[in-house]
Design a protein around this nucleic acid. Sequence first.
DNA 1: ACCTGAACACCGTTCAAGT
DNA 2: ACCTGAACACCGTTCAAGT
Lengths: 197, 197
Amino acid sequence: MVPTPYHHGSLRDFLLSEGRQLLVEEGPQAVTLRGLAKRAGVSHSAPVRHFKDRDALLDAIAAEGFDELATALSAAEQQEDLHSRLSGYARAHVRFALENAALMDLMFSGLPRAGDSAAAQAAARFFAQGATMLGEDGHSRPGPLPFLLAGTLEGISSLASTGRLARDQVDEVTETAVTLLLPAIREQLDRRGRSSD
Amino acid sequence: MVPTPYHHGSLRDFLLSEGRQLLVEEGPQAVTLRGLAKRAGVSHSAPVRHFKDRDALLDAIAAEGFDELATALSAAEQQEDLHSRLSGYARAHVRFALENAALMDLMFSGLPRAGDSAAAQAAARFFAQGATMLGEDGHSRPGPLPFLLAGTLEGISSLASTGRLARDQVDEVTETAVTLLLPAIREQLDRRGRSSD
DNA sequence: ACCTGAACACCGTTCAAGT
DNA sequence: ACCTGAACACCGTTCAAGT
């Protein structure tokens, strides 16, 4: 077996996917540039060609995470009635978080270092998607509901993935959140629907 | 000035307070055992006497954080009517989070390594306090509302301290959360108040 | 363009030894 | 009991040099 040369960008892909896997399976302290280089069979300074530093790699992983999360949620958004749509969205969010705890942590609790980073842009797309589902047009400044929905789901996810909220109670808490948010969201959607102002 | 000897536990206090300050002001990567030892004017292996390893120090800092947060919230719990109580509790939580972002991150997103650690016990006290305010008796398993309240506040705090939720919208989102949670909480309190079952 | 290898300045952790 | 100093095995990052 000839060792793969990792030319033409394939090292970049390796760093991203292996880094992501290490992050989720062993935690953030396990993703090191030197360790990844060793796994790739490449010199310890090779990764720098593709990611300026460790933070740049983590930023790229976070960006992928936001895109993946958005994809995981988009199925729910196709649901016909509002309750199913919201409920499916919420459950998909929490499920993704439970399966990718350390990744979600990186995505949501990592202070965005630059507004124009890949992660910051992917995050903006993710939040815009949620706002759209709640009838925000994207022109004017979003109201409180998109933030409240995103925050609530993030909080429930965090409690669940740190084990503070028991697995068998996650669905109940999520559904309670949806039930309490639903009337306010419905009212907002009705209002926006009526006047196209 | 004779350099302080740091005998009899005063090094421990120094590591805790200086570590906490570094955490909040410069981020988690700034709190290193060697760096703290240098600041204390002590050999790099001295801290090990007081904290087994870096995680043990962070755990102790997190424990202090939970106790402090609980104290910051206890004032609001004295409020007479439910709405003021809940609203004050929520605003105090979010305010504390904005002033101690990296600390809150450590407290809430750090996966608890041991159930009997100081941080785990302090966290349990914190969550129990919230549950009590919502009329949970502590005997039976808590219902969804304490988790939903804690999760929502944590989520809003996280969005705010990462800059995704603008400062001047934080109060509006928090108050919306309180308004939507209030009827469910009131109903639960009424129910618990009526039947002492 | 992409990678290597040496170098530098940091880490955490362990352990024999000092007071 | 508390701290020192050397040692080991890791890091991130930089940079001249190779292909």
